[in-house]
């Protein structure tokens, strides 16, 4: 069970959270303008990174807020937590490996 540092409540056990998938995917402002290919990309295509992954969590059994985290998928260690809407933080170079 992971420890997740909710930006609002602090460190809490994973059991209080629900996972929200890849972060920084904004719903298109005007979906009607997208062709089928572009819409399918938005709907279905997700990255599957070995390394640092930006992902969404929700403190569902806590304050209820969604937020984002950077997690190294090879170690399950978190490198950053930040609020929804904030840009992805820059990490020291040694963490920025993605394959």
């Amino acid at each position: 069970m992971l420890i997740i540092d909710c930006p609002y409540c602090g460190k809490r056990p994973e059991i209080e959270f629900s996972y929200g998938g890849q972060a920084h995917l904004a719903r298109p402002q005007q979906p009607a303008q997208l062709d089928d290919q572009a819409w399918a990309e938005f709907l279905y295509m997700r990255t599957n990174i070995k390394g640092v992954y930006a992902e969404r969590w929700r403190h569902a059994r806590g304050c209820g807020r969604f937020f984002n985290a950077l997690r190294d998928t090879t170690t399950d260690h978190f490198l950053a937590f930040y609020k929804t809407g904030e840009p992805r933080p820059t990490l020291p170079a040694q963490h920025e490996r993605t394959t």
């Binding site: 629900s18 969604f66 929804t84 809407g85």
Partner: peptide, 13 residues
């Protein structure tokens, strides 16, 4: 409720 909160908080804050 979870889906509604997702759109409310992350798409239409």
């Amino acid at each position: 409720l979870g889906l509604m909160e997702d759109y409310r908080q992350t798409e239409w804050p």
